[in-house]
Computed example of a mutant assay.
Amino acid sequence: MKKLLAAALSGVLTAGIILGGTGLSTKAAETETETTGELTPIKVAASATPHAEILEQAKPILAEEGYDLQVTVFDDYIMPNEVVESGDMDANYFQHLPYLEQYNEEKGSHLVSVGGIHYEPFGIYPGTKSSLDDIADGDSVAVPNDTTNEARALLLLQDNGLIKLKDGAGLTATVTDIEENPYNLDIVELEAAQVARVVDETAYVVLNGNYALAAGFSVAKDALAYEKSDSEAAKTYVNIIAVKEGNEENPGVQALVDVLKSDEIRNYINETYDGAVIPYDDSDAEAESETETGSEAETETAAETETAAE
């Protein structure tokens, strides 16, 4: 039930960047641009909100750099990866790395990330009840049913004291990993795209950022609880640009990633989505990685010194 494909329609649509089904051969693209003066196409598969919206803002910037960004919107989690794996499209923008890795494992595909762009905080939103203080025995809570997103939803419920998961459940947690359920909550598992549609039928709903936006929710104003910007989930579930392995250095892909990380796009995201979409800062992750590496080196040095002393 938790198989990736069973949850395929839950929201993968949010992010397909499909760069040129022609493969965007560097020399061919340069020759075409030089001889015809036309822009080099970058075909992109994306979810409607916020991915396609963000890509629309990138279009004029890329045009100035000689690229014609062509965005195609998908509404499932399977096709955006299939078209990139097949070579019909050059990249997609709709998923986070845990989903991509699980997809590769289950489908035998060869997709890789070329850059993290943003993350969307998961939130608990009101259904028939407007406060977590009103929770009562037997209340229902709707959550996404795909593996990574359901685990994320359950972890958020746990962080807010509504359930307790078995030790080690982590990013693969399912309802079978609920160890304590003090309110006897009825966890309603639905495709991610369907969760927001049951706000009138369940006490609470736990939504991906993009589906919260599509449903008219504001993280800052409406969420009863949500993942914090410095949380492990925020770092883990960064939405990425994905390409087929071997296409990482495609100049069109590189230009796309650079533009999506630009101050212009970062400002657009911050000003538009009211905290539901947050630009990802690579420098934070790099700094953390360097700190960890430095600590490991210090530990090794200390161990060597101790050994020498012995």
Rank of each mutant, 00 (worst) to 15 (best):
D133C: 10
G127Q: 10
P182F: 11
D137W: 13
Y211Q: 13
T202R: 10
V175K: 08
D200H: 02
D167R: 11
A223C: 03
T172W: 03
E189H: 06
L213C: 00
S130F: 14
A242N: 11
I187H: 05
V188C: 05
L156V: 08
Y125R: 13
S229D: 14
N247S: 15
A196Q: 12
N250D: 10
Y183R: 08
N160E: 10
T176Y: 13
D186S: 13
L190A: 12
A193V: 11
L171R: 14
K164F: 03
I241G: 03
D146K: 04
L165Q: 06
Y125P: 11
E179D: 14
N239R: 13
V206T: 07
P126H: 04
I135P: 15
Y204C: 07
K166I: 01
N239G: 15
L171N: 12
A192G: 14
V243F: 04
Y204E: 06
F217V: 00
R152T: 14
A220Q: 13
R152P: 00
L207G: 09
G138C: 09
A212D: 01
S131N: 15
E232Q: 15
V219E: 11
E150V: 09
V195C: 00
E248Y: 02
S218K: 05
A192D: 03
A215L: 05
Q158L: 01
E249R: 08
D133E: 14
L162W: 01
K244W: 00
V205L: 09
P182A: 12
L156G: 07
D167G: 13
D167Y: 07
G170V: 10
G127E: 12
Y226F: 11
A196S: 14
E180I: 10
G127F: 08
E189F: 02
A215C: 03
L165E: 05
E249D: 15
V219T: 15
V238H: 02
L213N: 04
E249G: 03
K164I: 02
A169K: 11
Y237P: 14
A242Q: 08
N184R: 06
Y204I: 06
D200R: 01
N160L: 02
D177I: 04
E179L: 07
G216C: 04
I240V: 09
A220D: 15
A193G: 08
L185K: 15
L165C: 06
A215R: 08
I187M: 04
A192F: 02
E248V: 03
R152Y: 13
L224S: 07
D133M: 10
D177C: 06
P126Y: 05
F217G: 01
I187V: 11
G138Q: 09
S218P: 03
T128I: 05
Y211G: 00
S218E: 02
